[in-house]
Simulated assay, not measured.
Amino acid sequence: MAQRIDVKDLNIYYGDFLAVAGVEMSVEPRSVTAFIGPSGCGKSTFLRTLNRMHEVIPGAHVEGTVAMDGVDLYGAGIDPVAVRRQVGMVFQRPNPFPTMSIAENVLAGIKLNNKRISKSDADETVERALTSANLWNEVKDRLNRPGSGLSGGQQQRLCIARAIAVKPQVLLMDEPCSALDPISTLAIEDLVSELKADYTIVIVTHNMQQAARVSDRTAFFNLKATGQPGRLVEIDDTPTIFSSPREQATEDYISGRFG
């Protein structure tokens, strides 16, 4: 299922404001790529362009190419809703639907896509997704209870189960552990390491240790000054970025001199 992403000369706008400029990178299939950098440098903005969530904001648009296995996601005739089915997203704070049960939360994406599903297929999908999210054994006896009744870490894993239930090819994660305690954070990190066997994963994190632990490649974003566009400074294998980056700005950020 996992797909390669190639980004070429991507400029990202909010109206007339150029928020992120000139991004070029490739994201390898069945790998974890981490985006690091100071607040406001465009990491999350760029992440949202990978499944066309950015253009949900009025006036927001992009120039350039985001291709998944050679198909430009912004090309003529490409349905953004179909893109978001292929490229799932997990947000900063766990956001299970409060009026839905655990099982209903898992199936929400499938039903939002107006797909009919038999009870046996629904049961199989719920078990598969919750098992993949390392949550099945914790909730299998209370699938009809509200998802909002779970702990924060369990809610985030439920959101991951909801994202992968529709069988995407890419999974985007925007600071998925920022609202979690250390034990829940470790559970999510372990889950990310397991999921990369089947998915292409891109994660935004402010936690440098987390990037070093979970990612295969790391991309450092920065901006020269407030009001200037964010830019990709460099991307490389994670051990290289953290031990011998090419750019001084990367070393300064990793060593804590700013950010």
Results as ranks from 00 to 15, higher is better:
Gly152Leu: 03
Ala163Asn: 05
Cys177Trp: 03
Val32Phe: 05
Arg52Gly: 05
Leu223Met: 15
Leu186Trp: 04
Arg4Glu: 15
Phe91Tyr: 13
Val56His: 06
Asp121Cys: 01
Asn113Pro: 00
Gly59Leu: 02
Gln155His: 02
Asp121Gln: 15
Ala225Lys: 11
Arg231Ile: 13
Glu104Val: 03
Lys167Gly: 00
Leu107His: 09
Asp236Cys: 07
Leu172Ala: 10
Pro239Glu: 07
Ile36Gly: 03
Thr125Met: 06
Asp198Met: 00
Ile188Met: 04
Val23Met: 12
Gln209Pro: 00
Asp190Val: 07
Val233Lys: 05
Asn144Thr: 11
Leu50Glu: 09
Pro229Asn: 10
Gly88Phe: 08
Ile183Cys: 02
Lys115Trp: 01
Gln156Val: 05
Thr200Asp: 00
Pro58Val: 05
Ala225Val: 00
Val233Pro: 02
Ile188Val: 15
Pro29Arg: 08
His61Tyr: 07
Arg257His: 14
Ala212Asn: 13
Arg246Cys: 08
Gly259Cys: 01
Leu18Asp: 10
Ile117Ala: 05
Glu127Cys: 14
Ile12Lys: 07
Lys224Glu: 13
Gly75Gln: 01
Ala129Ile: 01
Ile201Trp: 09
Arg157Cys: 04
Lys167Val: 04
His206Ile: 10
Phe220Lys: 01
Asp252Asn: 14
His61Phe: 02
His61Asn: 02
Phe35Asn: 09
Pro146Leu: 15
Asn137Gly: 15
Ser26Asn: 15
Asn222Ile: 10
Met89Cys: 08
His206Asn: 10
Gln154Trp: 00
Lys140Asn: 13
Asp9Gly: 08
Gly59Ile: 11
Gly64Glu: 13
Ala197Thr: 14
Arg217Ala: 11
Lys196Cys: 06
Glu63Met: 15
